[in-house]
Amino acid sequence: MHELSIAQNIIEIISEQCSKSGYAQIDSVNIRIGRASGVMPDALLFAFDAIKVDTMARDAALHIEEVPVTGLCRDCESSFIVEEEYILFCPHCKGNSFHITAGREMDILDMEVS
């Protein structure tokens, strides 16, 4: 639901970096979004395209790498990846003493500028 403000944040961060590096235009940007982050990639792409007009990113393509939710079990010490946006129990020992090691990411990785 808040993909628009996420898109605004992305454009602010990359525009600042682009200027700092001495370039005028952003051609593409790579970001990483965890599946448990609450961000819908399609909605983010839509929001990014809607607000990039009139910015240094006006011609930029947004590439989203989705990161699956990964957990590490404290009981049986196995690590696992799930399809869902959440983990309810360790798929190996069925215990619920685990911590989430990946899946909440919302990071900008790099970009192509010219």
């Binding site: 944040n9 990359i14 990071d107």
Partner: peptide, 14 residues
Amino acid sequence: MKVKVVSRILEANE
């Protein structure tokens, strides 16, 4: 030209 950014998107809020 490739530029590394490596920044959390919600960094400003945090």
